[in-house]
């Protein structure tokens, strides 16, 4: 599975904002932290505002704030705002009544797509953030003996 850039940027931004729902961050803040294109991210942020996932705060010190429910929103919910997650066989002349070998390959890709979606659709933002914090704690604990 390879996420397109818009999906990836959206996941990063939403998780970053959802990690502290009171905090406002600008596109530049997020782009700098993850070393990604501000221009591309700005487009993604506009889409996320349009979909009601995040809220744009205007004025001095303005930026974006998470506007959803971290326990109800899954990674797939965010990704599907930008792509379908349906694998397509790159065969332009393939039709529904086509070759059985192509049909078998399509069946395999469908099976993989269904598993991928099942994983992404059951990881809420809350779970992803919890796991991220656990990773951070593990990293910190590993670094501490070196510092001492």
């Amino acid at each position: 599975m390879k996420l397109n850039k818009a999906s990836l940027f959206a996941l990063i931004s939403v998780l970053e904002l959802a990690s502290d729902a009171e905090r406002q961050l600008s596109t530049t803040d997020i782009a700098k932290k993850y070393c990604i294109s501000t221009h591309h991210l700005a487009k993604v942020m506009r889409n996320l505002v349009h979909e009601g996932v995040i809220q744009a705060i205007r004025g001095v010190g303005g930026g974006y704030r998470f506007a959803g429910n971290i326990n109800r929103t899954t990674l797939l919910d965010i990704i599907q705002l930008f792509e379908t997650m349906e694998s397509e066989l790159d065969l332009p002349h393939w039709g529904e009544d086509g070759n059985p070998i192509v049909a078998e390959l399509q069946s395999v890709t469908n099976e993989i797509d269904n598993l991928t979606k099942a994983v992404l659709d059951t990881i809420t933002l809350a779970t992803a953030l919890k796991n991220s914090r656990l990773r951070e704690e593990l990293l910190t604990n590993r670094k501490q003996p070196e510092a001492g």
Partner: peptide, 18 residues
């Protein structure tokens, strides 16, 4: 069950993965 999103999400939330 693949369609039981609620239960799958619960087990994910307590750290289980594939």
């Amino acid at each position: 069950d693949l369609d039981n999103k609620l239960t799958l999400s619960f087990f994910r939330s307590v750290g289980m993965c594939t």
